[in-house]
């Protein structure tokens, strides 16, 4: 019988399986092409829909957003809005990290601390940060610290658990090897657990930074008169759809830039993870 060549499988010259190959590598150029296309295609579709005469209140055109950002910058002090929002998010996130990293380190290292803190944290993290607004206004007031407190509540409890998990993932044999070399408890934390968990910790910081941004609009509900989130809320009141779009886009853009900066830092800080030979 003649072999069926129509389904002949040639492992060397097989066609690239861009979308069907399970974890098969793709060319760098292909990756970038697809990534850029994922931005361009929705943008083109948006242009097309807007050009077909959609109601501007319903869907403003991309060029309207650009114009709006320009006027916002020149007439409404966009720089100040970005500045204050950036400050609120970064301050709340940094404050979270300041407490979450030591606490998570303790939870992930000592079982007693875990029992004492982890179930409680699990319980609190399910409480919606938004619902804390009245309490925060009552306890903290309505100044800057209140808005930072809302973002803090939304970020901190998740961050603690993620840090604890990062610390728990440090292989026990790395710790035991240090013990048999005479390391003290402090040295095990300082010279093994921390350096071993560092790359995962930086990823946790990157991801929780994103979460902190999602709480911005909520935080700026609290008696704010500046900031990107506040601007979006105010634009909603006046049905300035283009400004809502502009605010959302700007938050997305800032988040994207920060995220890429974190990834770059990861590559620079942990060359041993990114070097292959």
């Amino acid at each position: 019988m003649k072999p069926d060549t129509s389904t002949h499988f040639d492992p060397i010259n097989r066609p690239p399986r861009l979308f069907l190959g399970v974890r098969t590598p793709i060319k760098k150029g292909t990756y970038w092409f697809l990534a850029v296309a994922s931005f361009l295609l929705p943008l083109l579709a948006w242009f097309a829909i807007a050009a077909s005469g959609a109601d501007k209140v319903f869907l403003p055109a991309p060029q309207d957003i650009i114009t709006r950002i320009a006027t916002w910058w020149h007439e409404d002090n966009l720089a100040a809005d970005i500045g204050i929002s950036l400050y609120r998010v970064v301050a709340a996130w940094a404050l979270s990290a300041l407490f979450a990293i030591p606490l998570g380190l303790m939870i992930g290292t000592f079982r007693g601390v875990q029992a004492l803190c982890e179930p409680l944290t699990d319980f609190i993290r399910y409480m919606p940060a938004v619902a804390f607004i009245p309490l925060v206004m009552l306890w903290v007031g309505i100044d800057e610290s209140a808005r930072i407190a809302i973002i803090f509540i939304g970020t901190f409890f998740q961050m603690v658990l993620m840090v604890a998990e990062d610390v728990r993932r440090v292989p026990m044999t790395q710790i035991e090897a240090a013990q048999t070399m005479g390391a003290s408890r402090g040295e095990i934390i300082d010279k093994v657990i921390l350096p071993s968990a560092k790359p995962a910790l930086l990823d946790t910081l990157r991801i929780t930074m994103g979460w902190a941004w999602t709480y911005l609009v909520v935080a700026e509900l609290v008696a704010a008169n500046s900031g990107l989130g506040y601007a979006i809320l105010k634009a909603q009141r006046f049905l300035q759809t283009d400004k809502i779009f502009a605010g959302i886009m700007l938050i997305g853009l800032i988040g994207f830039v920060i995220d890429q900066a974190f990834r770059l830092l990861h590559r620079k800080a942990f060359p041993w993870l990114h070097s292959r030979s």
């Binding site: 292989p171 790395q174 090897a177 048999t180 070399m181 005479g182 350096p195 041993w272």
Partner: peptide
């Protein structure tokens, strides 16, 4: 307890990849 007179060698995952 553990002491520097007794060194242990494990099957794997005991090296420090950041060093």
């Amino acid at each position: 307890g553990p002491g520097i007179d007794r060194a242990m060698i494990f099957q794997h995952y005991s090296l420090y990849p950041w060093l």
